[in-house]
């Protein structure tokens, strides 16, 4: 039991190790993404300063809290954007999935581990952005370790929810021919309803309801609002419970859809 676990861990570890290597191979892309994100930060701050030029609060939030929340959202957005949708969709389509299934590891677990590694790496990669935001706009981070812990739990739970969600969409993508369009669509929805562009608190009630029902806010608004001080730590247990509920539902659904899609793949031979 222990030895199989050890072996599995080593196997997953080997897979994780390939992720940073891939990033380094595309170093020019990393520079580009820093530049692009810094532009986004400058625009974000200028826009929101203009928003608050003639008003003290919007949706109960003041300028500093809002900007802080949105900057933190940028830095930790990796939890919300998993690449698994595109990955799995493409693999289903070109038949590479057959090879991956041959590996002696649970495929979904493998991809979950890769997703975690990706999230960690992407978050590390946004350190320069955080630094810029701190130097230029005084980004403030909480010093209470309890807040960080609460945030981390919520982020991991939310990320797991989004992972399962993207897994489902990726499997659906197998039936359509256009994974790319589908992933852009998913990205567009995620952008708004995750709360990456505006905190859910500022949305009118009907939009806010949609945003809280849709899973996108699980991995962005919920964790980041703790970090930005919009939601207190005391609200956490309730939030975790909600996230767990989502996770169970999406996990079960993702296993079901995957099983079904696999049957189609194996029957059709890819």
């Amino acid at each position: 039991m222990i030895s199989t676990l050890k072996r599995d861990l080593r196997a997953y570890g080997a897979i994780v190790a390939t992720v940073p290597k891939m990033f380094m191979a595309y170093s020019i892309w990393v520079w580009m993404s820093w530049f692009v994100q810094i532009i986004a930060v400058v625009i974000l701050v200028a826009f929101w300063r203009a928003v608050f030029s003639n008003t003290a609060t919007v949706g109960g939030l003041d300028l500093d809290t809002t900007i802080n929340y949105l900057l933190l959202g940028m830095i930790f957005r990796a939890g919300q954007n998993t690449d698994v949708l595109y990955e799995i969709g493409e693999m289903m389509r070109d038949g590479r999935i057959g090879i991956t299934l041959l590996r002696p590891l649970d495929m979904q677990a493998t991809y979950y581990v890769i997703n975690l590694a990706n999230m960690g790496l992407n978050t590390l990669l946004s350190i320069p952005i955080a630094l810029f935001a701190w130097l230029a706009y005084g980004l403030s981070l909480p010093n209470d370790p309890l807040v960080w812990l609460a945030f981390l739990v919520a982020l991991l739970l939310g990320n797991a929810v989004m992972f399962c969600f993207d897994w489902i969409i990726g499997c659906v993508g197998f039936y359509s021919t256009e994974i790319w369009g589908l992933s852009v669509l998913r990205y567009g929805f995620g952008l708004f309803f995750s709360g990456a562009l505006i905190p859910l608190d500022m949305m009118p009630d009907w939009l806010r309801t949609i945003a809280s029902v849709l899973p996108f806010s699980q991995a962005l608004y919920l964790p980041v609002s703790i970090l930005a001080g919009i939601n207190p730590v005391s609200a956490m247990p309730r939030i975790w419970l909600i996230q767990l509920g989502y996770l169970v539902v999406f996990l079960v659904a993702s296993r079901l859809v995957f099983g079904r899609a696999l049957r189609v793949v194996t029957v059709q031979g890819g």
Binding site: S53, T55, V184, F189, I198
Partner: peptide, 21 residues
Amino acid sequence: MIQGAGLLTVWVIMSQIPDLN
């Protein structure tokens, strides 16, 4: 869709404030 996300943001915010600077 992508444009929509940005535009929805502008609309949601600007309907709550008198003006954008």
